[in-house]
Design a protein around this nucleic acid. Structure first.
Length: 178
DNA sequence: CGAATTTGACCTGCGC
DNA sequence: GCGCAGGTCAAATTCG
């Protein structure tokens, strides 16, 4: 296991899913045939079987995320929150929630969601000026799946040299039309 | 001792 | 207008 999360030998593999399902809350997106795991390693980017790799992301109108950072932190984040930031989610097959992707995340909240019995965790990138957020949620349907939703883009280099995962992220950025 | 996590309160958007 | 659901803050606590 050469993943950063080494300790627990989890298998992170396919990267895909848009953020549509989050906005529309349509569950059909989850019905991918995940049994295709272990198909040529974790790097499911090569949609060989055709199941995943649907990075489409729907940042709707606003186009690129220029306003991702610098949110109105005046008092309690009021106003100027109209622009929705582009978000995109991955589904990962993992036994642990903490998917260490090489960045340093600080947890700032945890909430129970209505449909899922598992709580959702909110993380924020600790890098100065990098307000990238992500949330991790485990599916009630099958707890082997963890959905990680990223919000925003890192404006700095990866902090932890994690072997080849940086390469994966690179590909991700290529796939994402930002 | 500083940084990260925990956890309940608080805020906001949305549907009724 | 109210209540619910989701998202964030911040004080206290734990961890390294």
């Amino acid at each position: 296991m050469f993943f950063p999360c080494s300790s627990t030998g989890k298998s992170v593999y396919p990267v895909m899913t848009t953020t549509d399902y989050i906005a529309n809350s349509s569950d059909h997106v989850f019905s991918h045939g995940d049994q295709s795991s272990s198909s040529g390693g974790f790097l499911g980017l090569k949609q060989n079987s055709g199941p995943k790799t649907d990075i489409v992301k729907n940042d709707s109108i606003n186009g690129p995320f220029h306003g991702s950072e610098s949110e109105g932190k005046s008092s309690k984040m009021k106003g100027e929150k109209k622009i929705k930031k582009p978000r995109f989610a991955f589904q990962t097959r993992s036994q642990v929630d903490i998917l260490d992707d090489g960045y340093r995340w600080r947890k700032y909240g945890q909430k129970a969601v209505k449909d899922n019995k598992f709580p959702r965790s909110y993380y924020r990138c600790t890098h100065e000026g990098c307000n990238v957020k992500k949330q991790v949620q485990r599916l009630t349907k099958d707890e082997g799946i963890v959905v990680t939703t990223y919000e925003g883009m890192h404006n700095h280099r990866i902090e932890k040299p994690t072997d080849n995962f940086e390469h994966i992220l690179n590909q991700l950025q290529i796939y994402t039309p930002f």
